[in-house]
Design a protein around this nucleic acid. Structure first.
Length: 692
DNA sequence: GCGATCAGGT
DNA sequence: CACACCTGATCGC
């Protein structure tokens, strides 16, 4: 359960996922997804009153979340104050203090969180730096690396703070079978039962919560049998989901509920009351989705466990596992990370101890200049070098990387001032995990894994985290980025390394991982005619597509989705699975349906914040009817000038005036050498580059 | 009668 | 095991 209080140190005038207490004063509200524990105070009279007295306060969320929220009459009073923001569309919002008129601009980008329909993470960019609030998320290993808008100038953005879903941030939850594994396990169980006769039915004993939809839709698709649910009007504008649900009880798959459901079940009665079909008694089994986890070295066993004669538990998780969290955070490598959740049985301190070494400040205590040997080592751990090579110059990553940016405005003092600004409000600042001393914790962290053979590499990674290397590299990279976006970049060489290291640790390499598709399967059955919300935007798509988590497959005993199926999905995306690319390739009708905003254009509003910046949104909310129109108008679609590399990390390391810009060829040469671990010449070069 | 909180259940 | 609820009891307004 989230214990996030609603405010972030950097942007205390906005509130996220909390709407009580201090948050009643917020200039703007954000809702990451429609689970009750993230909606505290959202329909309280105090907030309602404030809305009535205010002209400007709005709630921002994804289109799907808006739709789900407004399905409940209890939130109807929000209707005119909810502004939905399309996924992956940077949007500027003016935060106005209505009393003083004081105004602050902020750019928010919604990133898919994979937790439940409509769930998103919020990436905020403004004068106090870039921060990421993850809400609740389930992202497979490597998914952050595939999110274009987390990147800038060829590498991950400089993120000051991450407010992180730490639900399973405990080594105890080291691994959780991937969605695909869980799904296929359930599919097979269901298949084995309902194919026996029309009277063989399954009851999915789901908790009341959004998040099971992809299970329903996949079951429905697989067996051509709709899933019985109590309510489906909330999905009325989401055909991808709606088509797989029914309120007709005469189906073989049920996910209906009743207070006495368990009791009913004892008597072969379903929660919806039926006990027979054509006067033949039903034969029922129950499947209860619940989280199952496995330790670092525990071999995974079945994702389905039989708990009774007719009862089963099936693995299912809305949240990322420990290793998925670590992968995510170490990739982002923020200055600070704050846990949103303290798992039961653990403490804030323990969680912080885990997060710290994945943050940047801890790495600053390690030697700044990485011996090349480290690179080599990481490199050798990677089994799939050709993929890597592909990535090198073949546009694996975010398209925007390629955008040429004649950025000169790299150095922005305002951004520098961030630190100071934060220091000036100590009261507001939560303790920064990232600011703690890293030394103290490293030993303890190592201890967590010390008994494992893999832990050698793991602990090594912790100590010489590639991310710190990345830090170093950023200074190196700077000049060339300024020079030419086409020049091969460090990032591309070593981005994979991050994943690799992890991968090797976990001892289950996957060559397919990097090529995995973006999670939502696009347009599975949308037909272009409708005016509905695509489940793509739900961030947890209707259909499962395996991806990063495939890395686990080798360990799994369970059946996986057929690789063909996965590949089918993959084709829609590019190798790196960049969403916007996907969008570019889709038919116009889909484009209209799913992405009302042209993604290929880049606007650069204040120049300061990266790539695409879409402008003001604070205006009348869109009507919900039919087409969910995106409020933000794409005014000012200028090609971003500096865009890419401006992210604050760049500023932190101003380029040396006298440093000469390496030529493209030379850089390429150097990188290749470094990537393959050859030290040579580089030594000298490196010094000159880093010597700022 | 409503909301907030807690305990207990699934 | 946990999650995201739900119900019911109690308290305060």
């Amino acid at each position: 359960m989230s214990s996030f209080e609603g405010q972030m140190a950097e942007y205390p005038t906005i509130s996220i996922d909390r709407f009580d207490r201090e948050n009643l004063k917020a200039r703007a509200y954000f809702l990451s997804h429609c689970h009750k524990d993230h909606m505290k105070g959202l329909r309280a009279p105090t907030l309602k009153r404030r809305l009535e007295c205010s002209l400007k306060v709005c709630l921002y969320c994804s289109p799907v979340t808006k739709e789900l929220l407004l399905t409940s009459p209890k939130y109807k009073f929000w209707e005119k104050r909810i502004i939905s923001i399309e996924i992956e569309t940077p949007t500027q919002i003016s935060l106005v203090d209505e009393a003083s008129g004081e105004k602050e601009e902020i750019v928010v980008t919604l990133l898919p969180a994979g937790h439940c329909p409509g769930s998103v993470m919020f990436l905020f960019q403004g004068n106090n730096g870039t921060v990421l609030y993850t809400g609740d998320f389930r992202l497979a290993k490597g998914e952050a690396a595939r999110m274009e808008l987390l990147h800038s100038g060829g590498r991950v953005k400089d993120i000051q703070s991450v407010y992180l879903d730490t639900t399973f941030c405990d080594p105890r939850f080291y691994q959780i079978p991937s969605r695909g594994e869980c799904l296929s396990g359930i599919l097979e169980l269901v298949r084995s039962w309902i194919t026996r006769s029309p009277c063989h039915v399954v009851w999915l004993n789901c908790k009341a919560a959004y998040g099971y939809e992809y299970l329903f839709t996949n079951l429905s698709e697989e067996f051509g049998v709709q899933v019985h649910v109590d309510k489906l009007d909330m999905f009325r504008n989401m055909p991808d989901i709606l088509h797989h649900l029914t309120t007709d009880r005469s189906t073989q798959i049920h996910a209906c509920r009743h207070p006495k459901a368990e009791e009913y079940f004892q008597w072969n009665r379903l929660p919806c009351g039926i006990t027979s079909k054509n006067r033949i008694p039903l034969r029922t089994i129950s499947i209860k989705p619940s989280t199952m986890w496995f330790g670092e070295r525990t071999r995974k066993t079945d994702v389905i466990v039989r708990t009774g004669e007719s009862s089963y538990r099936a693995c299912f998780s809305f949240h990322s596992s420990y290793s998925e969290i670590k992968d995510f955070l170490s990739y982002i490598c923020p200055v600070n990370a704050y846990p949103n959740v303290i798992p039961v049985g653990t403490t804030v301190d323990k969680v912080i101890e885990i997060l710290k070494p994945l943050c940047r400040s801890s790495q600053s205590t390690t030697p700044k200049y990485k011996p090349l040997g480290k690179l080599k080592k990481a490199r050798t751990l990677y089994q799939d070098s050709e993929e890597d090579d592909d990535d090198l110059f073949d546009d694996p990553l975010p398209v925007p990387l390629r955008h040429k940016v004649p950025n000169q405005q790299i150095v922005h003092p305002e951004v520098f001032s961030m630190t100071a600004a934060l220091e000036n409000q100590p009261g507001k600042l939560r303790q920064s995990t990232g600011c703690y001393n890293a030394e103290s914790m490293q030993s303890s962290l190592v201890a967590n894994f010390v008994d494992c053979e893999e832990s050698n590499s793991e602990s090594e990674e912790e100590l010489e985290n590639p991310a710190s290397l990345q830090e170093d590299l950023s200074s190196v990279t700077l000049p060339q980025q300024k020079a030419d976006g086409d020049v091969p970049q460090w990032e591309v060489f070593f981005k994979r390394t991050d994943e690799v290291t992890d991968e090797s640790l976990e001892n289950c390499p996957s060559s397919t991982e990097a090529g995995g598709s973006q999670s939502p399967k696009l347009f599975s059955d949308s037909d272009g005619e409708s005016t509905h919300i695509s489940s793509q935007t739900s961030s947890q798509s209707t259909h499962i597509t395996e991806q990063g988590s495939q890395g686990w497959d080798s360990q799994s005993d369970t059946v996986l989705l057929s690789s063909q199926e996965k590949n089918g999905d993959v084709t829609s995306s590019n190798k790196a699975g960049c969403r916007p690319r996907i969008k570019e390739t889709i038919p116009a009708s889909h484009m209209e349906q799913n992405a009302l905003c042209p993604k290929d254009t880049h606007s650069d509003l204040k120049s300061r914040h990266q790539d695409v910046t879409v402008v003001p949104t604070v205006e009348e909310p869109t009507t919900l009817s039919g087409r969910e129109h995106i409020p933000q108008e794409k005014s000012q679609l200028n090609l971003s000038t500096n865009a890419d590399s401006q992210s604050s990390s760049d500023f932190e390391i101003p380029s040396t005036p006298e440093a000469e810009l390496p030529q493209r060829e030379h850089l390429r040469y150097l990188y290749e050498k470094l990537a393959t671990g050859e030290s040579i010449v580089v030594e000298k070069k490196k010094c000159s580059l880093l010597d700022t």
